[in-house]
Amino acid sequence: MRIPPRNTQALAVTLLAGATGLTLAVLVFVIVFILGKGLPVISLGFLFDNPQEMGKAGGIFPTLVGTLILPLVAILIALPAGVGTAVYLSEYTGDNLATRIIRFGTDCLAGIPSIIFGLFGFIFFVTTLKMGWCILSGALTLAIMVLPTIIRTAEEAIRAVPAGYREVSCSLGATRWETVLKVVLPNALPGIVTGIMLSIGRCIGETAAVIFTAGASLRLPHSVFDSTRTMAVHFYILAREGISNENAYGTAAVLILSVLLVNSLSYWMMNRFIARRTK
């Protein structure tokens, strides 16, 4: 008994649309639920005041600063290393055993749970290097954690740059490095930015690796050698210790809105860059 193609087509469309609808519904539900509970809590005072009684009252200002600084430092460390690796792998080496092992290694690294990175960061940076709980320890740990993401997305983006561009650049008297700077990286930028945004998202949302390495201090950090608490950690502690469900949801709402802000800002900057290059 054979189902007519017309019916399988209709069935496929129904199933695919259903899957899309379900995904969208879950997403909208989560966001609406958290914003619904969190938005009423948010005020200028909530954003810019220091927390009191471990976060039961007062605002979340130090955690806002921590959430900005920690991913920023982590990306500043991971980006040059990650993009550098990607450029080296795709532009300067052929496909041989060594590069295949490196690729396999980064793929494995990407699948390791974050708490393992947290434990490593605690043992290596915090204890062995005696750096203590601080922003730098946390950022280095997060950098290692997001390195595979940055390397692989950057490499994919670099590979997608047409080979013809490289040939033209070289035939016009550019060295390999000049070709990388002037042709390969600018054209791979959208993919690289996608990798950065994924990484920022992971850093902002990370708790386990951050508690182990950057600590959970509620004081405003003055340098990268101070401990800090990110919003995600703050949310976790507020909810876990039952300190204040209300403020936990408020923090979560601010967290969601900041991720939204960071992503829109990066897209806007990227589009401006592309538009300026090719009017």
Binding site: P162, G164, E167, V168, S169, C170, S171, L172, G173, A174
Partner: peptide, 18 residues
């Protein structure tokens, strides 16, 4: 690299850089 500055090349398919 210096050689390619002296010997230029036009390819089969036009490849303008973006």
């Amino acid at each position: 690299v210096r050689l390619r500055k002296r010997v230029g090349m036009v390819f089969a398919l036009p490849v303008p850089l973006p």
